[in-house]
Design a protein around this nucleic acid. Structure first.
Lengths: 187, 187
DNA sequence: ACCACCTATGCAACTCGTTGCACAGAGTGG
DNA sequence: CCACTCTGTGCAACGAGTTGCATAGGTGGT
């Protein structure tokens, strides 16, 4: 549904091959949209068929040739059309929430341990994002246009990680009359 | 992947028919997991085949018969197993984020209008959740067990809606040198 | 009597996404 | 030279989820 458009955004920022796109989807774009390389290749093929992108084969130093994709005018029009189309809120689908709600039907202490691990992961990611923010956007007030958009999406990632850390902490506090530190391994 | 387990949680709380489950997935459970009735019927059939649930046909007043499903011991064991299995963080996949990042390739003012509408929706939902919190959980400190879990998941919904309202507000503030109020209709 | 609508269940076809595997060229180490 | 690994591209099969439609009984309006 939207992978095509995520790819159009990414290729508009900078043309890339399938594998390069895959790496982006494991990094910056991947903060809010993930995709495997197979899916990307398949969608790229369809987009090329529809003339939304155009491939240019590039011979490389020692490696295999790569096909570098760039957005065509038709692709740009499609992206602009989609950007302006009505926006639906993202459906929130959380396996974690299902588990938390069902915790009393399983091993509560195991769930608490998992939640501690999960909170640690989110805290790590949050720290990483905050580092990126400081490093890449020292003066947010000076930003505008696409740079500002990139910054604001990073801000969204930061806010989201804070949501997770906050919620999981509330969960642990409510269920654990223990202290916040771990007597065990994780966290 | 997890719809089976979401259904197990819901049926553990209270047995239900396919349509009743569908309504739950449009309400409380649906805050963090959505499913259409077709999908629910299909998964229920598979779960019955695997003996995770057992159906009892119930004749009704005037309406058509319904099949009320309840969790079997085997289903309870499966749920307990899943609850205790390693928990992966929920992948965050946001079409909204893709649009915000790509806004400069389309009509910026249209995006801003959409974002204002979206923020209004999230604010409405937040108010609704906060009402539920006050009405159903006047004394959270007294909760324990499954009731506490239900409350904490609602708290997650509240925190998530606050995330959305906060982020979208930051986006609008950064892009709109206008005031926060709307000269138009939404917001 | 007829039509429209509601509850309740379900099938079929399709899209989206994941997983596992394949293949080809090129560099690296034994 | 052979096996291994890395990059780069791709197919096939499957599972998850959505959309559209079908059916069957009951209820209420005209």
């Amino acid at each position: 549904m939207a992978l095509e458009h995520a790819i159009l955004v990414s290729l508009s920022e900078q043309p890339a091959s399938g594998l390069e796109l895959t790496r982006r989807f494991d990094r910056s774009i991947g903060f809010f949209w993930s995709a495997t390389h197979q899916q990307i290749y398949r969608v790229l093929a369809r987009m090329e068929r529809d003339a939304w992108v155009h491939a240019r084969t590039v011979a490389q130093h020692g490696r295999a040739d790569k096909k570098v994709y760039a957005v065509t005018p038709a692709g740009g029009r499609e992206l602009a059309r989609w950007i302006g189309s009505p926006m639906a809120g993202d459906p929130f689908r959380s396996e974690v929430a299902v588990r938390l709600r069902g915790a009393s039907y399983g091993d509560r202490s195991a769930v608490l341990a998992e939640v501690r691990g999960l909170r640690a992961e989110h805290a790590t990611r949050l720290a990483h994002y905050e580092l990126l923010e400081k490093r890449d956007f020292p003066d947010p007030a000076a930003l505008s246009g696409h740079d500002l958009d990139v910054y604001l999406v990073l801000r969204g990632g930061i806010r989201l990680e804070r949501f997770w850390v906050g919620w999981l902490t509330e969960y642990l506090d409510a269920h654990g009359p223990y202290d916040g530190s771990d007597h065990g391994a994780d966290a």
